[in-house]
């Protein structure tokens, strides 16, 4: 610990650094927002959700002339942060980035929270998973892979996220959709997509179902190949990777989404200001550049569309998670 004088000294230094870009526009004389806004992120600093939230936060800051503090409330596979958003004061000064897990955690009996526990503001992003194998694996197409699974159920191991996570559901739902059993490819839980991709490259597992941007580094490095993508259309960043529908004729699709939401019961005066601001942020060049750079898919959903999206997603998750035996209700 430094002495007080040094605290102030180095504080002043940090202030100068911060001054390069942060505190800008003067406060607008308007009812809301009259003080800093907190944006809660249920996932760790540096991840995809965090980065997306920080970009949106910076853009909202410009819109409102008030600081938007991005606060990571991590842990419990998202439960802690999601519950922090839902239980915050509904005054518009706490918003948060909620993710696809909100439609999954309640099936596992981890929380009572659902999409309906929030005031939906905007759906900002959705990323479908791809089916990745190691670069030198014998499976040249997703058809080869399915044939190998059928020939030897339980031999190939899959990974991409924790037990019962979104990519686990993606794999299991896909297997079911083509008439196989959900556990014909046993799931190896991992701490997210990056360790799973690394384990794939190291030869520890055989298939990783995770989103294309998450797999991209390994694919670009020539360590992994993507065989198919679980979305209605091909990914513009990887035009050579076919969809599951093209290859196997199944309609199974899924996506991990991120959206902005507030606690339930936020006044209309707040939503009336924030939704258009989010729309402008979503359409801004900064946001587009960032999302394209990272390969994240951009989707826009108004509050009503966002709510419907969450409800549909929730029902779909329930079906697969029950089949997997991980749903409690």
């Amino acid at each position: 610990m430094l002495k007080r004088r040094d605290v102030i000294k180095s504080g002043a230094a940090a202030a100068t650094v911060a001054g390069l870009g942060l505190k800008g526009a003067p406060a607008i004389a308007q009812a809301w927002p009259s003080r800093p806004i907190t944006m809660v992120v249920p996932w760790g600093a540096g991840g995809g959700t965090d980065q997306t939230a920080r970009i949106v936060g910076t853009l909202l800051e410009k819109e409102f002339g008030q600081p938007v503090n991005v606060v990571n409330r991590t842990g419990g596979s998202g439960v802690v942060g999601h519950s922090a958003i839902a239980t915050a004061a509904a005054d518009g000064y706490t918003i948060g980035m909620i993710t696809v897990e909100i439609g999954m955690m309640h099936w596992q009996g981890l929380t009572d929270l659902k999409g309906t526990s929030y005031t939906p503001l905007a759906l900002m992003n959705a990323d479908p998973p791809g089916v990745q194998v190691k670069a030198d694996s014998p499976y040249k197409s997703v058809k080869d892979l399915v044939a190998a699974i059928k020939a030897n159920p339980g031999k190939l191991k899959g990974s991409g996220t924790g037990q019962g996570g979104i990519w686990h559901v993606a794999l299991a739902g896909w297997l079911q959709a083509i008439g196989l059993k959900a556990d014909d490819v046993p799931w190896v839980p991992s701490n997210g997509a990056a360790p799973a991709m690394q384990d794939l490259a190291a030869g520890g597992i055989d298939v990783v179902t995770c989103s294309v941007p998450e797999a991209r580094a390994m694919i670009d490095a020539g360590k992994a190949r993507s065989l198919a993508v679980m979305s209605p259309q091909r990914n513009p960043a990887f035009p050579n990777v076919p969809t599951l529908k093209e290859e196997l004729g199944t309609d199974w699709t899924l996506a991990a989404w991120r959206g902005i939401a507030a606690p339930k019961g936020v006044p209309a005066a707040v939503t009336d200001r924030i939704v258009p601001a989010l729309k402008r942020a979503h359409d801004s060049a900064t946001f587009k550049d960032f999302m394209n750079q990272r390969g994240f898919g951009m989707v826009w959903g108004e509050p009503a569309a966002f709510a419907k999206h969450m409800a549909d997603d929730d029902a779909k998750m329930g079906v697969v998670m029950k089949a997997l035996g991980i749903a409690k209700t």
Partner: peptide, 9 residues
């Protein structure tokens, strides 16, 4: 906590 391979609290 919840962050174990089985995702059981």
């Amino acid at each position: 906590g919840l962050e174990n391979p089985a995702a059981v609290p």
